[in-house]
Design a protein around this nucleic acid. Structure first.
Lengths: 236, 236
DNA sequence: AGATGTCTGTCGCGGCGGCGACATAATGCT
DNA sequence: AGCATTATGTCGCCGCCGCGACAGACATCT
């Protein structure tokens, strides 16, 4: 798991299902693994497909999103190396509820659902690990809903950038978001339009909260989180 | 589990962790149970409290919500008999991420976390049941986020009412929402203001989508879901 | 180099809906 | 019953932001 996987916590990460596994346990998993490459922008699975596998990211990044009837795209998560995805429902005939798409050229491990099921029955400790992780994801989703339903766009973007920079709350030095996000991607994460993101990003640049280095965004975390705090206090 | 618990699926339900347990398994759980009454509006636990127990509702209803810094209340779920809540993280020193409050006078079973943990290690099948359920909740949360980030208030309210009436998608006869919700409560569920809910509810009344019977709302599901469908198509 | 597609930047109109400010009704408490 | 609290109803202002419409910038391919 590289830096990025850590970066996106706790915003959307949450898929570190197998973190905390012992070496033995990890080796058992290893036996069932098939590796497969996906090129950028290739759909890994669709929302209406039956969920037969659990996926684990070795290299690259994967975007999970839902599509609304009028064509919008809601990004639920962008996952990196070490993250796991696929439905966590070990019943037959369950469909995926979202799309998974390779963000860059990526290498994934594919675990047949039934093998994972067997493993979990043999090793309850692993099952507990999974429950722990999914439980955390649930709490974090509540936080996510709070963002969408409570704050205006400036705050939503600010909080997103801080989370992407892995700095939410800790306020250390400037840090880099190591992925090439278009304005449209960002818009799909904070539920707004592409134009508005463009405008806000430029405002943030002028205020010195962020700057670009090639295609990557450098966030001045202390400055930005200060700004957010003040803006929130002003409201109350 | 009475009607209401079913009603709120798949909107917010999701807590039927122990559904599908065998009798034996249920009996094992029975040994660890302590019953306790809570009066209406009593806080069961706060967001900053350590999570020591898992709660199971026998009678009444419980509201789960998060509170923002400016005093807003985001309702994450309203749960009924048969539902289970509390953090699903079996680690020490974990705090609740939200508030739980008795909606009416309620009777809850309280399960010490450690006992649940032991049970799960002994009975991996129960753990799998839990993973299944939490997995479903995660999918449904994605749907929930979609609602907040995509639709206008009329659609959000309409979809909420349909879900509360247990009719999302199935379009049968008129059905009743068996709980006393204030406009403020509804506002906290669809992220809007109390005044707007009042206005919309009255519009819905005039259009014949709903009517009141005492304090309970009767939803004309076929009519309402028809309206929603047409409105969505109009956009695209 | 030209051509095509994708991404970024800017402006203005217009609408949704938040919010303050009441007024009135219902409900609960003692 | 009488008072306090909580819930509902209505109106209008105004600000945020969606969205169409372009115009440039940049990348990629042949």
């Amino acid at each position: 798991m590289d830096g990025w996987a850590k970066l996106i916590e706790p915003y959307l990460k949450n898929f570190h299902i197998f973190e905390g596994l012992s070496c033995d346990e990890a080796r058992k998993l290893g036996h069932m693994v098939i590796d497969k490459h996906f090129k950028a922008k290739v759909i890994i699975f669709s929302a209406d497909e039956k969920a037969e596998y659990v996926y684990l990211i070795r290299e690259g990044h994967v975007k999970l999103y839902r599509q609304t009837e009028d064509g919008r795209e809601n990004i639920i998560a962008i996952l990196g190396p070490g993250d796991v995805f696929g439905e966590f429902v070990f019943a037959e005939e369950v469909c995926h509820s979202m799309f998974a798409e390779a963000f860059e050229n990526s290498l994934l491990c594919i675990l047949p659902r039934k093998n994972v099921l067997k493993l979990l029955l043999d090793e309850p400790a692993i099952a507990l690990t999974i429950i722990n992780n999914i439980g955390k994801r649930l709490s974090q989703t509540a936080y996510f809903i709070e963002n969408l339903s409570t704050y205006d766009l400036t705050l939503r973007l600010g909080k997103l950038l801080l989370l992407l920079a892995g700095e939410y709350g800790s306020k250390t030095d400037a840090s880099k978001i190591k992925i090439r996000l278009t304005h449209q991607d960002i818009a799909n994460m904070i539920a707004t339009s592409r134009q508005t993101v463009t405008t806000l990003i430029n405002q943030f640049k002028e205020l010195g909260f962020i700057r670009y280095e090639g295609r990557e965004i450098i966030v001045n975390c202390p400055l930005l989180s200060d700004f957010i705090e003040k803006k929130q206090q002003a409201k109350s």
